[in-house]
């Protein structure tokens, strides 16, 4: 079996003295969509930041496309083919939409292909074509999210890390974003590691998923299996089985560790 595109082994990251994630091991196979689920503060974003070089893990190994990532600067990691769309979106507020997209291709030298990719982005996200010369600041939250994803794709990454792409969006936009995620993966074979609180949507698009709680991975499996597990159904999908008493919740949750 081929080496996975991304493999984390026993990764441990601290913020100062505070342990944020511990013993994280996960794999992302080429051309797949993998979801990382968990509630607020579980450490999902820290996993992504450890991968993309924004925080340095104290322990463990992170291998991406045959290279060890820790020790690389974040900008060098983008050059290796790994783009991270942060939760805060972080568009360049005073640059136009077009300039934002061009900056996404900063690490590339193939100008013609960049121009073709620009057109491809306008095809994937028609809203960006309409807003081309507007400063990114003037875009709505959903439009900024779309721009942030498109900007990351402009780097033509092998692996895209998406941190809560649906956060703060209207239900209709959430649907659109997930349609786009599926299209990106289907059309260009871009591998995606998706961090989400919206477990229902994430499990629909992902093939495999990990569940993270208080800094540890507590459950993993194919998306279909996870979607059928009673714990996931109750705590992440909000679907309560008949006969389960809510008073027993804490006990069942504890079994996961």
């Amino acid at each position: 079996m081929a080496e996975p595109l991304l493999a984390l082994r026993n990764v441990e990251t601290y913020y100062g003295p505070v342990l944020a994630i511990q013993g994280i091991s996960l794999e992302v196979r080429e051309a797949s969509i993998v979801a990382l689920l968990g509630s607020n503060g579980a450490g999902k974003s820290t996993v992504l930041k450890s991968i993309s070089g924004f925080v340095e893990p104290q322990k463990g190994t992170i291998r991406f496309a045959g290279q060890d990532l820790p020790g690389h600067e974040p900008d060098a990691i983008v050059g290796l083919g790994l783009s991270h769309v942060p939760e805060e979106r972080e568009v360049f507020p005073f640059l136009s939409v077009r300039e934002n997209l061009l900056m996404g291709a900063f690490t590339r030298r193939d100008r013609d292909a960049v121009r073709a990719d620009l057109e491809r982005m306008y095809g994937l996200f028609p809203i960006l074509r309409e807003r081309l010369d507007q400063p990114a600041l003037s875009l709505s939250g959903g439009e900024q999210q779309v721009l942030a994803i498109a900007r990351a794709l402009m780097a033509s990454p092998k692996l895209l890390l998406l941190d809560e792409p649906s956060l703060g969006l209207s239900p209709r936009l959430v649907g659109e974003i997930f349609t786009v995620i599926r299209r990106i993966n289907g059309e260009s074979g871009t591998t995606i590691l998706l961090v989400e609180q919206n477990a229902g949507k994430a499990l629909e698009v992902a093939e495999y998923a990990y569940v993270i709680e208080v800094g540890r991975i507590v459950m993993e499996g194919s998306a279909r299996d996870l979607a059928d597990k009673p714990d996931i159904r109750e705590f992440y999908l909000g679907l309560k089985e008949q006969g389960v008493r809510s008073v027993r919740r804490w006990k069942r949750k504890k079994l996961w560790r």
């Binding site: 924004f54 983008v78 507020p93 300039e99 900063f106 900007r151 780097a155």
Partner: peptide, 19 residues
């Protein structure tokens, strides 16, 4: 443009691979 971008958000500049 990369200098402008860095001035507007260093974090975002890192995210697109600007040194």
């Amino acid at each position: 443009l990369a200098m402008q971008a860095t001035s507007q958000s260093q974090l975002a500049a890192y995210h697109v691979g600007i040194p």
